[in-house]
């Protein structure tokens, strides 16, 4: 597994089977464990309302749907950035990275607004075990997306300044793994927390 030789092309550097990419994959797997424990915690205490509001009373599914769409659109726009990377079109990469950033920022903005609304209406994390677990789980995902946005901004700068080099391409590949991974975690969040929470 040593494709990352000196002077490798963009294609080789962003190939899935380099050691550094595998290392990042193992990090993602450890993140899967973290999220799965937060999901477990949420499921075990989700009916402990402590006299506070229940899921169906506080969740706005319309906003959750908008958040879901924002992340899904950001996934395909990141895919288009990767296609432009492989075609070695620098401006295309910059354009689609910027659009991905806007969709990601929309997601975080909607989530922050939701959190502020909940706290304002007396449904903060200190209200009940259910809400503590909710804020911890959804907040951890939102924090990941926020760090993803910082990473996208950094990579935008690197592509703009350094151009499309094998190293930059390799970093973009790992960022794409991170970004698509967060969308997968969100699928479990909207299914387990929001949709199932409103049905019950």
């Amino acid at each position: 597994m040593s494709h990352a030789a000196e002077g490798a092309s963009v294609h080789t550097a962003s190939s899935p089977n380099t050691m550094v990419n595998f290392g990042f994959w193992v990090y993602l797997m450890s993140d899967v464990i973290i999220f799965s424990m937060l999901f477990t915690m949420f499921v075990t205490v989700q009916s402990h309302y402590n006299g506070g509001p229940q899921g169906h009373q506080i969740f706005e599914l319309r906003d959750v749907f908008l958040e879901t769409m924002a992340l899904l659109f950001s996934s395909i726009t990141f895919g288009l950035a990767m296609l432009n990377l492989h075609a070695e079109k620098k401006n295309g990469v910059l354009l689609w990275l910027a659009i991905t950033f806007l969709f990601g920022a929309t997601f975080v903005g909607l989530e922050v607004r939701e959190f502020l609304n909940l706290v304002h209406h007396g449904a903060g994390p200190d209200t009940s075990a259910f809400l503590s677990a909710f804020f911890t789980l959804v907040g951890t995902h939102g924090t990941h997306v926020t760090f993803g946005l910082i990473w996208i901004a950094v990579m935008f700068g690197q592509v703009a300044v350094k151009g499309i080099s094998p190293k930059v391409g390799s970093r973009l590949f790992r960022l794409s793994l991170f970004w698509h991974f967060l969308d997968i975690v969100w699928i479990v969040v909207f299914s387990t927390v929001y949709l199932a929470g409103v049905v019950q």
Partner: peptide, 17 residues
């Protein structure tokens, strides 16, 4: 909800990752 989530995770793994 559960079935759609599992299928969508697989779609993301194959098509995006």
């Amino acid at each position: 909800i559960a079935v759609m989530a599992v299928i969508q995770i697989l779609v993301h793994l194959f098509c995006f990752l």
